[in-house]
Amino acid sequence: MQISRPAGAPAPFKLQRNERGWLRPTDDYLRLFLLRPELAPVSESCPAELALHAALLANPSAVVPAAGLQALQDADARESYTLFLRFRDGLQAAGTLEAYYLGLFPRSGEGRINIPPLFIDMVAEAITRNLLADSGDVYEMRAAEMLFRSQRISTQDGQVLSGDRDTLDMLNETGGLGDIGRFLAEAKAPMPDINMRVLSDDNAPDFLAARDKPGQHSFLLDLTHEVSNDLSHGLVLTMIRARSGLKALAGVLQKWVQHFLGVAVSIRPLQKIDDAAWRWHVGLDAEASALLNDLYEGREVEPARLQRLVSLFRLDFADPLEMRADVAGKPVYLGLMMNAEGVLRLKPQNLLVNLPLRQAV
């Protein structure tokens, strides 16, 4: 999905901020969904589908009677429009993207997702874009993509690198040449080199220039930890990576918590948990949640599984009084982990649902 936003605009997609800084949906925003391949008409679309799509493009808030959906000849098209209308109506009823997102993931754990994951990712993308609207930190911009796009993790020359999964899979399959690339691959013809660059100060202008263009997810993020060297006399020299993707991700997650929950926290990367009074943890993905639960309960964990842990983080509340009384002042440990196929699917909603808040938000 490509996003175009004029410089200085308050929020992406011509979304409007309310007094809290949350985003109100607009017709222009809803049109983005209607223009997606999942909803855009194709050559085989029936007249009823063409008419419905044209009517919704003209007025995305238009009421669509049940008979209008049943008139669609293609069952997949009926389902796609049913899901879109459910999403649209829920978003408009919530009033803001943030309120809708929180409604999908209530702290009670009783939520039920009945819209496509793609729609959730698009909402998260709009929110994170808004969070970083005034930021000039390209590392945070790239790290923010991890909140709504799956990543592939690899290790090269001692670096832990995060790359956009869909982009890498497409490049591996087609060499970046689309259908022509697939034809070359099937013919076993030479394929062009894949041009994926690790984000750095030197190529940061290229990242910004490509950010809203096709193929913009072509920069790798360095998630390598800081390096500690043991010196004599019990001293430890810690070498901090000046442009750490882990530090950038921590900064984005801090903003995410503040924006949604109104709670100030600090988050920093951590190499290990060395805390006899460990009281609370949150996995930033399904794999990390399971691993931290096992470690907390003292279960034995296979070394190969531990090696899939990308990073730990320590989260501290600026005001311990905003925490549950039984854990007030204690750190919250976070985990980030790839699966056995090297894919990392971060779930930012976990921070909103599982932090030990003094009261529900």
Rank of each mutant, 00 (worst) to 15 (best):
L52Y: 04
V282P: 01
G181T: 10
N130M: 06
V263G: 08
R24H: 08
M1W: 09
R20W: 09
G283T: 11
D316C: 13
D274S: 13
L235V: 15
G8A: 08
A264I: 12
G283W: 01
L253E: 08
M146K: 11
T128L: 00
Q70Y: 00
L355A: 00
F317H: 01
M239G: 11
G251L: 04
Y100S: 01
Q92F: 13
L295H: 04
E49I: 10
D202R: 13
L309A: 10
A248I: 13
V265F: 10
R129A: 15
W278L: 09
S162D: 07
A144H: 05
L147P: 01
H225N: 14
F207D: 06
G245Y: 01
A250L: 14
S4E: 14
P356M: 05
T224P: 07
D157G: 09
A248V: 07
P10G: 11
D206R: 03
P25Q: 00
A210T: 09
V64W: 00
R112G: 10
A99S: 09
G136T: 08
L292D: 00
L221K: 07
L34W: 12
V63Q: 10
K255E: 01
K255N: 03
N339R: 03
L171M: 12
L355M: 06
G95C: 06
V332S: 02
L344M: 14
H225L: 15
E38A: 14
E297I: 10
E300N: 12
W280C: 04
N229V: 13
T26K: 03
Y296C: 08
T26N: 03
D27G: 15
H225G: 14
A133R: 15
I115Y: 02
M196R: 09
R211C: 13
L253T: 02
E140K: 01
G176R: 02
G95F: 02
P10Y: 06
G95W: 05
Q254P: 02
E38S: 15
I267P: 02
D74K: 04
V343T: 11
Y296P: 07
L351H: 07
E98D: 01
Q159C: 11
G8N: 05
P47K: 10
A66L: 10
G175R: 00
D222P: 05
L32S: 08
Y81C: 05
I273S: 03
I127P: 03
M122H: 05
C46L: 02
R152Y: 14
F148C: 02
D76N: 15
N172W: 07
A325Y: 07
G234L: 06
L199T: 03
N293E: 14
E145C: 13
N350R: 12
R345E: 14
L291A: 07
R211S: 12
I127F: 04
E145G: 06
A7H: 09
G95E: 12
P117A: 07
S162E: 07
I194S: 01
V63W: 07
D201R: 10
T224S: 15
A94M: 04
L35H: 12
R36G: 11
P65T: 11
R314L: 07
L34G: 05
M191G: 11
L315P: 04
A11V: 04
E140D: 05
N203M: 01
V227A: 09
E98H: 00
L336A: 06
R107N: 12
A209E: 12
N172A: 15
P25F: 00
E19D: 15
G163W: 01
A77S: 12
E173A: 15
V353C: 04
P356G: 06
P190M: 09
I3N: 08
L39S: 08
R36W: 14
L334Y: 08
P190D: 05
P10F: 13
